Simulated assay, not measured.
Amino acid sequence: MQAQRPAAGWANSFNGRLAFLALSILINSFFNALTVSTHLGSAIWTASAVSLSGWLHVSLGNILFLEGVIVAFVNLLLLGRFDYFRLVRNLLFITPFSYLLAFFERIFVALGVPTLPLGWRIAFDVIGLFGVACAVSLYQRANLIMHPNDDMPYILRFRFLHGSPVTSQWLSNVPPLALVLLVFAFTHQLFSFGWGTLYNILTQGAIIGWADKHFLPILHHHLDIKN
Rank of each mutant, 00 (worst) to 15 (best):
2 Q>K: 11
3 A>M: 07
7 A>N: 07
8 A>S: 12
10 W>E: 03
11 A>C: 10
13 S>Q: 09
15 N>G: 14
16 G>D: 11
17 R>S: 12
21 L>R: 06
23 L>D: 13
23 L>F: 15
26 L>I: 07
27 I>P: 06
28 N>D: 09
30 F>I: 00
31 F>N: 08
35 T>V: 01
36 V>Y: 13
36 V>H: 12
39 H>N: 08
41 G>R: 04
42 S>R: 03
42 S>E: 12
43 A>I: 00
43 A>R: 04
43 A>K: 05
44 I>M: 09
45 W>E: 08
45 W>Q: 06
46 T>H: 11
47 A>R: 06
47 A>M: 07
48 S>N: 04
48 S>P: 00
48 S>A: 14
51 S>E: 03
54 G>N: 07
57 H>L: 04
59 S>H: 10
60 L>M: 13
61 G>E: 09
62 N>A: 10
63 I>S: 10
65 F>A: 05
65 F>H: 06
66 L>I: 04
68 G>Y: 14
71 V>S: 13
72 A>D: 08
73 F>T: 00
74 V>L: 14
75 N>F: 13
77 L>T: 05
78 L>W: 15
83 D>S: 12
84 Y>M: 02
87 L>M: 10
87 L>H: 10
88 V>M: 10
89 R>A: 15
89 R>L: 04
90 N>F: 11
91 L>K: 05
92 L>G: 13
92 L>R: 05
95 T>V: 07
95 T>I: 07
98 S>N: 01
99 Y>F: 14
99 Y>L: 00
103 F>N: 04
103 F>P: 00
104 F>D: 03
105 E>W: 02
106 R>C: 10
107 I>Y: 15
109 V>H: 14
109 V>E: 15
114 P>A: 10
115 T>P: 00
117 P>H: 14
118 L>N: 06
121 R>M: 06
121 R>P: 02
124 F>K: 01
126 V>H: 01
132 V>Y: 00
138 L>C: 10
138 L>V: 03
139 Y>W: 08
142 A>K: 08
142 A>V: 02
147 H>C: 04
148 P>V: 01
149 N>E: 06
150 D>F: 12
150 D>W: 09
154 Y>E: 02
154 Y>N: 04
154 Y>Q: 02
158 F>V: 00
159 R>A: 15
159 R>W: 14
159 R>K: 15
160 F>I: 00
162 H>G: 04
164 S>R: 05
168 S>Q: 06
172 S>P: 03
172 S>F: 13
174 V>G: 11
174 V>T: 03
175 P>Q: 06
176 P>M: 03
177 L>P: 02
178 A>Q: 06
179 L>D: 09
180 V>A: 14
181 L>V: 05
187 T>H: 07
188 H>I: 00
189 Q>F: 12
190 L>V: 01
192 S>K: 03
194 G>I: 01
195 W>V: 02
197 T>A: 12
198 L>Y: 13
202 L>V: 05
206 A>Q: 06
206 A>S: 09
207 I>L: 11
207 I>D: 09
214 H>S: 04
216 L>I: 02
218 I>W: 14
220 H>E: 10
220 H>K: 08
220 H>C: 02
221 H>W: 08
223 L>R: 13
224 D>G: 09
225 I>F: 13
225 I>Y: 13
227 N>P: 02
227 N>E: 12
